[in-house]
């Protein structure tokens, strides 16, 4: 028996929003420790890795490990049926071929349940090595989304240059070029408004703006985004999911032909 109850169904809606741009379907691996998802986008360019810890749920029970392959379009349809303030419970029997979503209004006067067929998905699991990154940048998630959106008007690529002074985002294309420099915040009153750089060595890398834009669909999950970069290894774009977990996106830098 698997059962996971979240008082804030909006978290699940936001998680889905954060992955459905890149993935059409995904397997939710449920175990005693929580729910994990790892999947590459269709073109195998980026990787999404999400973790929701069992202790972050209001109720969590998982007697046996269960992998639930879900069509994210169908899941989106079902979660649209939940009000933001509803309590959501996901349930499945062991070896089940369906999952049930139960939505309860805060006053318990309306209870709905939706059963969704599960899919058998071919799963590739990738081992992600522990990496010491040359630069780790934290900045407001909304600012990062704005920068990615603004720069994607100029070119297909965004160059991210990180030094101890701050971080620069650049793009160039047919209409011209654009540079956005963010200085490291000198006086941090509110962490969620700060730009911070932890740097071992300066890094300049080029990334596909289309994928960066897809990653920013997670913006509503967190006030802060963390970018981890090293030469010749994938960028990690990480958003925390409240007190319950995180979502990380991996994207390899472009290389010059």
């Amino acid at each position: 028996m698997f059962e996971a109850r979240l008082v804030q169904s909006s978290i699940l809606k936001k998680v889905l929003e954060a992955i459905k741009d890149l993935l059409n379907e995904a397997t939710f691996d449920c175990s005693d420790s929580g729910i994990q998802l790892q999947a590459m986008d269709n073109s195998h360019v980026s990787l999404v890795s999400m973790n929701l810890r069992s202790d972050g749920f209001d109720k969590y029970r998982c007697d046996r490990n269960i992998s639930m392959g879900m069509n994210l379009g169908s899941m989106t349809k079902i979660l649209k049926c939940a009000a933001n303030e509803d309590v959501v419970t996901m349930k499945a029997q062991d070896n089940a071929d369906t999952v049930t979503f139960v939505f309860e209004s805060p006053n318990q006067e309306k209870v709905s349940d939706y059963e969704m067929k599960l899919m058998n998905l071919d799963q590739e699991h990738l081992g992600i090595p522990e990496t010491e990154y040359a630069c780790v940048v934290r900045l407001p998630a909304g600012e990062f989304a704005r920068i990615c959106r603004d720069l994607s008007q100029f070119g297909e690529s965004v160059v991210i240059s990180c030094t101890k002074e701050g971080v620069k985002f650049s793009s160039a294309g047919d209409i011209g070029s654009a540079n956005i420099k963010l200085a490291q915040t000198s006086n941090v009153d509110k962490e969620e408004l700060a730009v911070t750089v932890e740097m071992q060595e300066p890094v300049t890398l080029t990334f596909a703006s289309r994928y960066l834009n897809s990653f920013t669909k997670a913006t509503s999950l967190s006030n802060v985004v963390q970018l981890s970069m090293s030469p010749d290894v994938p960028l990690v774009v990480e958003y925390r999911i409240g007190e319950i977990g995180h979502i990380r996106y991996y994207l390899a830098p472009k290389i010059e032909d």
Partner: peptide, 14 residues
């Protein structure tokens, strides 16, 4: 011109 490597080139299947 830049080319885009796949993520699977960096992380191994387990």
């Amino acid at each position: 011109q830049n080319s885009q490597p796949q993520i699977i080139d960096f992380f191994q299947n387990i």
